[in-house]
């Protein structure tokens, strides 16, 4: 057990252990995702309603916006694929089963979290990895990202007319009319926005409540966990400790 690692700002109990929860790939994927979403939303809003009207003969505003949009779209796709790979290759908190409340335990912890948010319970139950409610929310986000990517690719197919891309995604326009795909693509952007607001709020909130250093963890990878909790989650010896 490591000592002297207690972060004064976070002020966890002195006995708590610093655990390497978020491996680098998880953190990288997370921040690439965040970056892409910001860029994609900004350029997407411009594509939807070009609020800058150029007058100069040499400008290339829409062209640039679309270029950036599509390019960051592909970065996002790559980051997500990478993250999905890590669903299977990563540590136990990166795994896919963290996002779906399969076990009775996770379901009741999820209920617990809901009650906490609903002011029916004084304190949240600390977790080593994602709490199951957050996990479910991320699962939804991953799902929305997939839809956003598919619709984005279908829109791109319409522009590009490339045979490979078309055989990959062309079926979608047969299923759902291009215009509705565009509408869905545009509409989901707002869901990400709404998620972000709540997500950042709850990250700060839970970080404070758990005193686990949750906020820092998405940068550093480390969380502070009570030894009792660790052993109760039955992961005591198998985790990387510092």
């Amino acid at each position: 057990m490591a000592s002297g690692t207690v972060n004064a700002r976070i002020r966890p109990e002195a006995s708590w252990v610093r655990v390497y929860v978020w491996q680098l790939p998880v953190r990288l994927a997370h921040w690439i995702l965040v970056g892409c979403l910001v860029v994609l939303s900004f350029t997407g809003i411009y594509i939807h309603n070009p609020f800058i009207v150029a007058v100069s003969d040499r400008s290339w505003v829409m062209g640039t916006m679309r270029f950036i949009h599509v390019m960051s779209g592909f970065v996002l796709i790559s980051a997500l694929i990478w993250r999905f790979y890590w669903f299977f290759a990563g540590n136990r908190w990166a795994r896919w089963d963290q996002f779906v409340p399969f076990t009775k335990e996770r379901r009741s912890a999820m209920k617990n979290m809901m009650e906490y948010y609903g002011f029916l319970r004084w304190w949240p139950a600390p977790q080593v990895g994602h709490n199951p409610l957050a996990g479910a929310a991320y699962c939804a986000v991953f799902g929305l990202l997939i839809i956003e990517i598919l619709t984005g690719l279908a829109l791109f197919d319409n522009i590009l007319g490339n045979r490979v891309l078309h055989s990959f995604i062309g079926w979608l326009t047969l299923l759902i009319n291009l215009q509705y795909l565009r509408m869905i693509h545009f509409g989901i952007m707002f869901l990400f926005g709404a998620f972000l607001i709540h997500h950042v709020y709850s990250a700060i909130l839970i970080s404070k409540e758990e005193r686990s250093g949750l906020m820092d963890s998405i940068f550093t990878g480390y969380k502070y966990i009570s030894p009792a909790r660790l052993s109760r989650e039955g992961v005591g010896e198998r985790v990387e400790r510092h």
């Binding site: 335990e105 912890a109 617990n112 004084w122 304190w123 949240p124 139950a125 977790q127 409540e209 109760r232």
Partner: peptide, 24 residues
């Protein structure tokens, strides 16, 4: 609510224990 709720030690971990054992 932070102004008048009971301290965390008394609740959070215990509740978590309860939830983890699934008996709540």
């Amino acid at each position: 609510r932070t102004r008048f709720r009971p301290p965390q030690e008394a609740t959070a971990e215990t509740e978590a224990d309860v939830s983890l054992t699934g008996s709540s």
